[in-house]
């Protein structure tokens, strides 16, 4: 039974990873792609690891997997934050669909 639940988690995780990768291809600019890359891929990878944890229980492998989940959750938003900030600072433009950019407005105010 627990094996089956673990497998369901792994399948869900692979599904979310798939959407993340699809987003990486389909969305228009760096910032939107980061959205797909952080959310879907974090959740998907965590799902796969959690499924593995359910199948193996509190063994050596299980603990490693839990630590992996914790570190993914800690590092992936920080990486996304760093990449998006660096991209904006090196003037990588947003897509034409963009409605508003308060960050750019504030940066120009500071420079004046």
């Amino acid at each position: 039974m627990i094996d089956l639940i673990g497998k369901i988690f792994i399948i869900l995780g692979i599904g979310f990873d798939f959407f993340g990768v699809l987003g990486l291809v389909r969305l228009p600019d760096v910032y939107n792609r980061l959205q797909a890359a952080t959310k879907c891929v974090t959740f998907g990878s965590a799902g796969i690891l959690f499924g593995v944890f359910l199948m193996h229980g509190f063994t050596n492998l299980g603990f490693k997997v839990l630590l992996g989940i914790a570190f993914i959750f800690l590092t992936s938003p920080v990486a996304a934050h760093a990449i998006s900030r660096a991209a904006h600072r090196s003037d990588i433009s947003l897509t034409e669909k963009t409605v508003v950019d308060h960050y750019q407005d504030d940066k120009e105010l500071k420079e004046e």
Binding site: F16, F19, L22, G23, R26, L27, P28, D29, Y31, N32, Q35, A36, K39, C40, F43, H88, L94, T95, K97, T98, V99, V100, D101, H102, Y103, Q104, D106
Partner: peptide, 26 residues
């Protein structure tokens, strides 16, 4: 909230027109 976020992004990605309206707000 995170589970909801994932479903939302998945919906945006598989929609044929990619109905996004991005921007940076404060």
């Amino acid at each position: 909230e995170m589970a909801k976020a994932n479903l939302h992004v998945a919906y945006l990605v598989i929609h044929p027109q990619v109905p996004i309206k991005p921007g940076i707000v404060k």
